[in-house]
């Protein structure tokens, strides 16, 4: 697992806000964030839906600030229009952490199987650039994703497998 304190230190330098809907794959990181909400610069906004989180991040981006968004990949099914008719269309930068549910490890969770299968093609069809976030190389991957987000002024994604931001 990535050390949550190192991860928080990294993101609070680059993002002023974090918002989203949780997945157990983010459990330890989100617990650490919540425990440190008072002394971190990044502001945490809870959301009722993933498309709402994209909407909030869009308002933040219209003000020249940046939001990191976290969601389960099932939430990808909720954000198509928020991406294509808002964040991508209006050129609003934001970084999405998507949990990668539905892989072999999730074989007891049939609700994630199909999204697990179509997750990457889905991102490709939506023209969202994406990378994997790994325990060993996360800083480089975060930097690459953030750089593309800024250069293209558009949403980008990182896929987060089990064990990377949770135990």
């Amino acid at each position: 697992m990535i050390d949550p304190s190192e991860f928080l230190t990294f993101i609070e330098k680059r993002f002023q806000y974090i918002c989203g809907v949780p997945c157990s794959f983010f459990k330890e990181f989100l617990a650490y964030l919540t425990a440190h909400e008072k002394n971190t610069r990044i502001k945490h906004i809870y959301s009722t839906r993933e498309d709402e989180a994209i909407g909030i991040a869009s308002g933040i981006a219209f003000s020249g600030k940046k939001a990191l968004i976290y969601m389960q990949n099932s939430g990808l099914g909720n954000i198509g229009d928020a991406l294509t008719s808002l964040a991508q269309l209006y050129k609003l930068p934001m970084l999405m952490l998507l949990s990668y549910r539905g892989l072999e490890i999730d074989k007891d969770f049939p609700e994630h199987s199909l999204m697990g299968e179509v997750n990457e093609p889905f991102l490709k069809v939506l023209k969202v650039p994406y990378w994997n976030l790994s325990e060993d190389n996360w800083e480089t991957e975060m930097k690459t994703a953030t750089k593309t987000m800024i250069e293209t002024s558009s949403p980008v994604a990182l896929l987060v497998e089990k064990g990377v931001l949770c135990q």
């Binding site: 002023q16 806000y17 502001k43 906004i45 959301s47 498309d51 709402e52 989180a53 994209i54 909407g55 909030i56 991040a57 869009s58 308002g59 933040i60 981006a61 219209f62 003000s63 600030k65 939001a67 229009d81 928020a82 294509t84 008719s85 808002l86 269309l89």
Partner: peptide, 16 residues
Amino acid sequence: GSMGLPIAVGLGLALT
């Protein structure tokens, strides 16, 4: 577009 999202966008703008 983004039908359903005007309040979310407004919230992001209001906070910032």
